[in-house]
Design a protein around this nucleic acid. Structure first.
Lengths: 247, 247
DNA sequence: ACCTGAACACCGTTCAAGT
DNA sequence: ACCTGAACACCGTTCAAGT
């Protein structure tokens, strides 16, 4: 050994090489590679070759570090540029872009899930970098003549659905056929007397677990609903779907 | 003291009073009262007045206990009975019932979120008790003449949206007006030049955070889309929403 | 079978101290 | 300001032992 007294392997990062950016990038890489459950402040510090407490010079807590990491990824995303295509087409592309951002980076998805279930900690609201996409979606809907309240509610619905679908898709990396087959087998093992339709539709239900096509299907339902919704405003309500107002 | 040598307060549950049911009920109560973050096997054991390891006689791990607790709640739920109302009305009621089940019991919501983000652990699939509701929804759609694949995909969309919306709603107990006002303030503090629509629609966007009305709005969009979807099958596709098939 | 207590290998974070 | 090591108050779970 050319080095003396190094028990493990830690004399890296001499003294001033640490930075918030380096910490965040390493954290995101660790999250992508090993998953949220394997992540810890101690493991991150070891990966960086510093003492655990060095991290607390840059972030007050693990929670704060996670928020910053999430914002870092969102900030690097931009919605597709405006084109001459019809508004619902462009809205579709924007949502698909968001969905791919989520499903393409497992780490972000896990951070979203984590913050989904925790109480709002500080003053953090929606992901900072997401506002550009929000503005883009709103401009498409307002430009199409959709009313103020409808546009706001539709925007919230689309975001909610996209995040929800991405979270669900997170479990199976891409199109895990093996897992779908087991799912189908479980459905088919149910009592055909009590659940005739589930048993009958087991192949279709299993196929619907595939993520991107399924997401696009639901997205298209929402967009189709939104397009017909325009007529309600002028034409007196259909029985199906007046936007409720009560609190 | 009539008792001798009791340091804390633990001589309860003499010897054979423990059971899986008692453990699950206590766990759900603890989850509802103190939240998932405050829950631990040690805390649950203390609440029951037994040693921590007593729990491991009934459940192999915390994960297994959580699955059982989730199934216990789902099992106690039944969808509204079939009526003469139009199918989309009944489908709406079924979804609203599910949504209220989720948002009404914070504990279940937290368990769902937890299992949402973890890798599928054993052979557990969809919540066991939920199959009755699934069957109910499928029968409504198939009865309305919706095709096999469309019904399967629509069913998945509705469940996905309902869970996603409930998860989001979980943060604010019911209609926390104070929180919405702060959300609105944050939106209004954005640059009016870069994000004119967000700033302009801040009141509407904040109002859309209210949970039940917002959920119903998105649900109605999906149902409206589903009703128009029927025409595509017979009539050659519109440009908006062919159910994708590729893998 | 049902339950216990000590122990193991972890956490996030505080705190006093070093440079 | 930037970083460290020891310590505190926790985890879930294993294991050998008791009834």
């Amino acid at each position: 050994m050319s080095e003396h007294t190094d028990a493990g392997r830690r004399p890296r990062t001499p003294r001033n090489t640490l930075s918030a950016d380096l910490i965040l990038d390493t954290a995101l890489r660790l999250l992508d590679e090993r998953g949220l459950d394997a992540f810890s402040m101690r493991a991150l510090a070891e990966e960086l070759g510093v003492g655990t407490m060095a991290l607390y010079t840059y972030f007050r807590s693990k929670e704060e570090l996670f928020c910053a990491a999430r914002d870092r990824v969102f900030g690097s995303y931009a919605p597709p540029p405006l084109t001459a295509a019809p508004w619902h087409r462009q809205l579709r592309e924007a949502c698909l872009g968001l969905y791919q951002l989520f499903t393409g980076r497992p780490s972000v998805l896990q951070l979203l899930a984590e913050q989904h279930r925790a109480e709002r900690p500080p003053e953090q609201g929606p992901a900072v970098g997401a506002v550009t996409t929000m503005e883009h979606m709103l401009s498409l809907m307002r430009g199409a003549g959709i009313g103020r309240q409808q546009a706001a509610r539709a925007q919230t619905t689309l975001i909610q659905y996209t995040v929800g679908a991405a979270l669900r898709a997170g479990r199976t990396p891409c199109g895990d056929a093996e897992q779908r087959r087991r799912f189908q087998a479980r459905l088919e093992s149910l009592s055909a007397e009590d659940f005739p339709l589930i048993v009958d539709l087991a192949p279709e239900l299993a196929a619907a677990q595939e993520s991107t096509a399924q997401y696009a299907f639901g997205l298209d339902l929402i967009l189709a609903g939104l397009r017909t919704a325009g007529s309600w405003e002028a034409a007196g309500r259909d029985d199906g779907a007046p936007p409720a107002q009560s609190d």
